[in-house]
Write a protein that binds this DNA or RNA. Structure first.
Lengths: 248, 248
DNA sequence: CGCAGACTTGACCGCGCTCAATGCGAGTGG
DNA sequence: CCACTCGCATTGAGCGCGGTCAAGTCTGCG
């Protein structure tokens, strides 16, 4: 079982919310510098999970929410008939586990898609803290609200859009999330397998594969394995946005 | 524009969170009696909306979340291409608007499906209060978390299940929500039109209609217009749950 | 080097969408 | 009271997107 890695003296780790390049994503701008110290006191920072390792498992007792620091995380639910449904992909700066805050147990599985560094927020102490820091409470309301809206967006995607539209939307979402981290928004490596993409988007793997090659033949993307290059962002946006697009 | 109705002296209105038969749905059991008084101070109670009237509109400045007291509410998003997507139906005791707490504006429209009574929670004052009452804060985290999970469930329904399974699941959801209010869980009147059901479930109206008649021919339900009677709950659960069901 | 898992490609078919017509109940006015 | 209309619901015919099944190919890892 992975443990908190202590490569540095505690003081160096303590300081890292301030230093962390993600702090304005994962943490609120609204949180004062002084409040940041209080937050850091309760956080377990930088635990490493290797590829395929679970961060938490469905139905395990709920203790913490988790921020992705590097790498990528996939969340999924095992339905009553034993099938897996991928509910989300989480990139650095994003919070995992907010959907479990109503329960005594985790509502989904969270698994590292690659070597991933995670910060842990124990909820019991977090709720004490949010009660004392109105800015932090507001931030958490915001984060959860965003999660709801994101999930609504996903529902729309799944219920109204074609395979091409769904995949274009996913590629654009990943693009903007890479770009937010000052990485290339047009050439990146997909952290997840085709299977996960298909499952997440409610498609068959074969369909995902076909759409990828179709996009490639149209010159919209280049893809080899998990390496993707978005050649024509405009075209992708057209595809994702406009169900009634005419040509190409 | 509808105004707060003042049929009773203020004192009578003031007391009604205690009296309200929904209080253990809409409000936390965790909230102490004494805290309930504080909550009541900030609530606008019992405003009436007639059928088709908006409770709030997408992109309007966000001020409040709303609890349904009687009637029913439909929320929807207008997408960039001008299409409507129904994101939820809200019954008495349920909170509307939680998906907007990350924003300065409402993320969706909320419309009364029938004559509906609504309690309003101004968020600015609510956040002050939740910061002082840990139980209330916890309750709101729970409510929002439930909303996320519900939306994930919807995503699964939309991405994995057939038309019959989706409709069976909706009927069962409505059934249990009516039952929670001590109303019949087997015979009720749908608050929404077929169109809304279709939109919500990502289906065509024609498909909804066909599935209703198919269910009826199988003796699983009786339906005439919006009046529905669930004849065989077990069968419905079978249909909703098990994609690999054999007979019937 | 060889195997397993991931990805691609092809052939076929069925669910659910589209288009179009009809049924039906409620509200309106002559 | 009936004729008319309008919105909503139902029913039918046809078809296309994407699922399923089945090979085949590529890739990485031991």
């Amino acid at each position: 079982m992975a443990q908190v890695i202590k490569l540095h003296p505690a003081s160096s780790l303590r300081a890292s919310c301030h230093q962390c390049s993600l702090s304005n994503l994962c943490l609120p701008l609204a949180v004062e510098e002084s409040d940041l110290d209080r937050l850091e006191d309760i956080i377990q920072q930088g635990r490493i999970f290797s590829r395929g390792e679970h961060i938490f498992q469905q139905n395990a007792p709920f203790r913490s929410v988790y921020a992705v620091r590097s790498g990528a995380v996939k969340t999924s639910i095992i339905t009553e008939n034993g099938e897996e449904q991928v509910t989300g992909f989480y990139m650095p700066g994003e919070l995992v586990g907010l959907d479990s805050m109503s329960n005594e147990t985790y509502a989904c599985n969270a698994k590292a898609l690659e070597r991933t560094s995670i910060c842990e927020f124990p909820v019991e102490r977090l709720e004490d803290l949010t009660a004392r820091l109105p800015g932090l409470q507001h931030h958490f309301f915001q984060l959860m609200s965003q999660e709801i809206r994101g999930s609504h967006q996903l529902s729309i995607l799944l219920s109204k859009n074609t395979a091409e539209e769904r995949i274009a939307a996913l590629l654009l979402s990943l693009s903007s999330r890479f770009q937010r981290r000052r990485m290339s928004g047009t050439a990146f490596s997909l952290p997840m397998a085709r299977n996960d993409i298909a499952n997440f988007l409610g498609l068959a793997v074969e369909t995902v594969s076909r759409v990828f090659t179709r996009f490639q033949n149209q010159g919209v993307i280049k893809a080899r394995g998990r390496e993707v290059e978005l050649m024509d962002l405009g075209a992708l946006q057209m595809i994702a946005r406009d169900p009634e697009r005419q040509s190409l």
